[in-house]
């Protein structure tokens, strides 16, 4: 793995407040080139809000989000140019075809017509969407839409890739393809920031993991570092699930199991 000394994605004391509610509270972390960073947390912990601030969809109440060293608020064009984003819900223009969408995204990111055409064809082939490329997106299945969203994020060959739950609703083959692509991109020096609920993916794929709970980043580190810092249980066999539940509170899960007995 090739890891760059410069963080490609960085947050410094990021805060987002909605009225009285503190959605993200003083979150700071860095993701370096060549690294896959897993971002975990229970529902409503602030994962998507953090991601939206990193990709420039949401203005932070305070703090800084940087992509490639550029402040997303002050130099949004530069930051967005090197970033790719896959949202949790792939809302894509339903009346465009997959091919038209990729061309459109290529144009938005300033690629030449030839580059866009070449990348669009490559990505459609890679994601097995060549046949469906001329169908409108509203006729795609959820998995196809998810793959199209990922293809759109890759059109401009981003240096930083932010993905919010990228494998939800995908068949095993597509999920595996996405994991392989992410691994390849990180090997080529891109920074991957990945939010997921599937702990097995995070455990197997991510070089470092950040856990957010109630808006606060409560743990950051490699699996080894998380294991060492965890109070869940002693020994090397401790899983990410144990760490996650011990950090975010697993009492409610025991209660659910009791009810279902």
């Amino acid at each position: 793995m090739m890891t760059s000394p410069l963080p490609l994605i960085e947050t410094q004391h990021l805060v987002k407040r909605y009225g009285d509610k503190l959605a993200v509270d003083d979150v700071s972390f860095s993701v370096y080139g060549g690294e896959i960073f897993g971002f975990l947390g229970p529902n409503g912990a602030g994962k998507t809000t953090t991601i939206k601030m990193i990709v420039g969809l949401l203005q932070p109440t305070s703090g800084i989000a940087k992509v490639g060293g550029y402040d997303v608020q002050k130099q949004p064009m530069q930051a967005k140019s090197i970033n790719g984003y896959v949202p949790d819900e792939s809302n894509l223009y339903p009346k465009l075809t997959g091919r038209e969408l990729l061309r459109f995204v290529g144009d938005l990111y300033g690629l030449s017509r030839q580059q866009t055409e070449r990348r669009a064809e490559e990505l459609l082939r890679l994601f097995d969407l060549t046949q469906a490329g001329d169908d409108t997106i509203d006729s795609y299945s959820h998995g196809m839409q998810q793959k199209t969203a990922l293809a759109a994020a890759l059109v401009h060959d981003p240096k930083a890739l932010v993905l919010d739950e990228p494998t939800v609703g995908l068949d095993p083959k597509s999920a595996r393809l996405i994991k392989d692509i992410l691994r390849q991109m990180s090997e080529r020096g891109a920074a991957i920031f990945l939010s997921t609920h599937i702990l097995e993916i995070a455990e197997r794929m991510c070089d470092r993991i950040g856990i957010i709970n109630q808006g606060r980043l409560i743990a950051v580190g490699s699996m080894e570092e998380l294991r060492r810092g965890s109070s869940a249980a002693a020994g090397a066999e401790i899983s990410l699930e144990d760490i996650f539940l011990s950090l975010t509170g697993g009492a409610e899960y025991a209660e659910i199991a009791e009810v279902l007995k």
């Binding site: 140019s81 984003y85 809302n91 894509l92 223009y93 938005l108 990111y109």
Partner: peptide
């Protein structure tokens, strides 16, 4: 643009 606005907003378009 509706819910598709994220695509424009996250792109480098002034």
């Amino acid at each position: 643009e509706g819910k598709n606005y994220w695509l424009l907003k996250s792109a480098p378009v002034s």
